[in-house]
Amino acid sequence: MKDRLFKAGLLAAACMIVLLTAAIVYGLVVRSMDAFERFGIAGFISSSAWDSQTDDYGALPFIAGTVVTATVALVLCIPFSLSVSLFNGEYFRGRKLAVVAGSIIDLLAGVPSIVFGLWGFYTLRPVLVAAGISGQGFGILLASTVLAIMIVPYSSSLSAEFIAMTPAALKEGAYSLGATRMETIRYVSLPVASSGIFASYILASGRALGETMAVTMLIGNTNNIPRSLSDTGNTMAGIIANQFGEAGGLKLSSLMAIGLLLFLLTAAVNLVAKYIMKIVSR
């Protein structure tokens, strides 16, 4: 009897997760309805308007800003995170140095977003200004650089695990044919671990897409589609954080709609990554 009650309790907890997810999706959809009814789903996504006077809103600049910053961040982070994963998963695998480096990288993942934002604003921005990249320093490049640093821990720690899983027999096979360590990494370890590495980068890009505070402090917050790396822009998360407090009516609904789109975007990205991971680990 007690056991049945206990099991029912466990099931109830699990049901709470289902309920919670349902409530999230339902809440976002219902609250976005006004905006979607007014502008149409395709119309909302493809419109660049953002005007409180005429009550006309569209998500295109923010979708563009989000995708561009995340993509640039991903590209910027690759040399660093791949190095870290080779450092921890291949060159110093199982040694104390790798443990220390791994812990430092993990701690980096713990640094609050707002602190990254401050650092980007006060330390990195003047560097970009001095380099003459843009007048104020704000923009895609600044936001993406900080984002890249922020996602290194996510992409590198998983990749390191996949690289470390390369069978010793294969590596020895390559060495016995006369390959150098770099050649072994390039032609054996990396190709064997490639799908896992790919998945970890997708997972990291999911992080980059949803990042809010650091990006909103650095991107310049202008409601336009960015034309170049030094251009300013805004992201989906950024516009919500900036305008949610003062919003009502159709504007609030439009922000909700952007929230829904962002949710779907990150969910899709995470799903793809998890799917690849599942295939790889089989």
Partner: peptide, 10 residues
């Protein structure tokens, strides 16, 4: 080697 180890990506 003891166990055949063809490179799986090639």
């Amino acid at each position: 080697f003891q166990r055949p180890n063809p490179f799986p990506t090639m």
